[in-house]
Simulated assay, not measured.
Amino acid sequence: MAFRDLIDDVDDTVFDVLGDRALIEGREVQGMFSAPWLQPKLGRMTTALREPHLVIRVKDNTGVETRQQVELPLAPEDGGGTYTITSIEPGGDGLVTLVLRKSA
């Protein structure tokens, strides 16, 4: 069995057990959602920018484009809601990061 096949099996298990369910334009995928707080400094002023993102597998990225809607059926305190994809960033490791912006 090739290395990539082994990693794909590991990813299947990890995403199934630890992943978050997401709907991208109504299509269900498993991903890892995160909404970290970034606080870049502009001079002495600290900003509070939030850059939520969803990490999915390359095989789930087919047909995914910027400006599509992502729905995360999580509690609001965990960042659940509807988002718009603002950029797609392949990691070169079989994973793709979808950078999100909260929809109104």
Rank of each mutant, 00 (worst) to 15 (best):
L49H: 10
L95S: 11
G94F: 10
L23Q: 11
G81P: 01
V10M: 14
T84E: 11
V55N: 02
L6W: 06
D9V: 13
T82L: 12
G79H: 00
L95M: 13
Q30H: 10
R21V: 15
F3W: 07
D8C: 04
I24K: 05
D78E: 11
L98R: 01
T84W: 06
A48K: 13
P40E: 07
T86W: 00
D16E: 15
T46H: 08
D60M: 07
V10D: 07
E28R: 07
T82G: 09
G26W: 02
V55Q: 06
V10H: 08
W37G: 12
L23I: 08
S87T: 12
T13Y: 13
I24Y: 07
D20Y: 04
E28F: 02
K41V: 12
L49W: 08
R4Y: 06
G94A: 12
P40G: 05
E51A: 14
D60A: 09
V55R: 11
D11I: 02
T66A: 12
L23C: 09
R21P: 00
F3A: 09
L74H: 01
D20W: 03
G19M: 10
I88S: 00
V99N: 08
D11A: 13
L100K: 02
L42I: 15
E77T: 03
T13I: 15
A35K: 11
T13S: 14
G19R: 06
V99Q: 07
G26L: 05
P52R: 01
F15H: 06
N61E: 13
V17G: 03
V96W: 04
P40W: 04
I7H: 09
Q68C: 07
I7W: 11
T82P: 00
D93P: 01
V70E: 03
T66Y: 01
V10N: 05
G79C: 01
I56L: 08
L49T: 13
R101L: 04
T13V: 15
Q68G: 05
R101C: 01
